[in-house]
Computed example of a mutant assay.
Amino acid sequence: MSSASTPPGARAAATTRGRPPKLDQARTVEVALALLDEAGLDALTMRRLAEAMDVRAGALYRYFATKHELLTAMAEALLADCLERPLPSPDWSERLAELAHRMRAALLSRRDGARVYAGTHSTGRHTLGFADTLIGVLREADFAPDDAARAALTLVNFTLGHTLEEQAALQVAGDGPADPERLRDAVTAAQYPHLAVTLPVLTSTDFTAHFAFGLRLLIDGLRAAGPGPAAPGTGG
């Protein structure tokens, strides 16, 4: 069929088919997260991202001057769904636990998600909204502002640290699950009696149970300390 007999709309579709979508910040983050799942954080480079998007590497710097800026935007995207559903309980401790579980699930939703999030300190609406909700739960329970802030930091740091270890334990150089036999072989009852008796838990990959236990200790500690005025010299 000659071009003269081809309808104009069909010619337009033919010329745009195969053309890479317009480069923008949102699509860049989307492709970066897909590459993260495919190859892991260590393999995610600006050059590899540019190749996946079929653009020159320099084009990415219009939106992200450094890789750290890209990671910050990726971290912001990780928390996008954390506040989509209302918190189910009026009890502050249950609301706090729910937020921690949602954050862990968000970090686990992507390969190396915790490593991406660590140290980014996004000021995007998802991150700030999550932090504001977390602190709001504590302030509504009558924790002093300084105590609420420190409790929120503790909860986030525990969740992040646990998930970092969890994702690391499930991989050996990104190639597969860690082998608990190494610890079992190294621990003898004669030399390490306390480790030996707790090996079933120490080598368990039930990270949900590990997380729930630590989170319960943290919240029980907050409940025992009790909300109230800030201690002298701490402000609030």
Rank of each mutant, 00 (worst) to 15 (best):
A114C: 06
L78C: 00
R110M: 02
S109W: 07
A75V: 00
A118V: 15
A131K: 15
D112E: 10
P86H: 00
A80I: 07
M74A: 01
H126Y: 09
L70N: 05
E84V: 13
T72P: 00
T72V: 09
A114D: 02
E94K: 15
W92L: 04
L83G: 02
L71N: 07
E76A: 08
E69Q: 13
S93V: 11
A73Q: 11
L87Q: 00
A105V: 01
R110V: 02
R95G: 07
T120V: 09
R111I: 02
R85A: 15
P90M: 12
D112Q: 12
H121Y: 15
S122E: 06
C82Y: 00
L99G: 05
G136F: 02
G119D: 03
L70E: 02
S109H: 06
L134E: 04
T123S: 15
R85K: 15
E84L: 14
M74W: 02
A80K: 06
F130P: 02
E98N: 07
A118D: 13
A75E: 02
H68G: 11
R125W: 14
I135G: 08
Y117N: 03
L83V: 10
T127Y: 13
L78Y: 08
P90N: 04
A73E: 05
G129M: 10
R104K: 09
A131I: 14
R85S: 12
G124M: 01
A73D: 11
M74Y: 10
E84N: 13
R115F: 11
V116S: 04
L107S: 10
E84Y: 11
A100C: 03
L128E: 04
E69C: 09
G113K: 05
H121N: 14
T133G: 09
S93T: 10
G124V: 06
H101C: 10
P86Q: 01
L87W: 01
A114T: 13
